[in-house]
Amino acid sequence: MTTAITLPEGAPDEVITNALVRDIDLTPFGFTGNLALITLDNGHDHTRPNTFGPQSLVALDSAITEAASRKPAAIAITGKPFIFAAGADLSGLAF
């Protein structure tokens, strides 16, 4: 999926929330197959929670596509330490 969304002039660059996909073997928990675990992480600590702007949504979309393609027993989405996601990235709205 390619999406070109341009932020308003003068708006700060989007802090992109990456979506990392990792296989978790469920055998030790008494199940078969893998859990595809998606971690949302913008690379900052908890004082800058995960947010979603255009590129972050693209990243999440492709992560879900990637996770599903692995034919997992389940897909789960989690956040970085202490933070799932705060919602939309509002930093560009003032511009």
Binding site: L20, R22, I24, D25, P28, L37, T39, G43, P81
Partner: peptide, 13 residues
């Protein structure tokens, strides 16, 4: 067990 590059994982062994 989290890795900044890979995301969260679970150590079982």
């Amino acid at each position: 067990a989290r890795s900044a590059e890979l995301g969260w994982g679970i150590a079982t062994v």
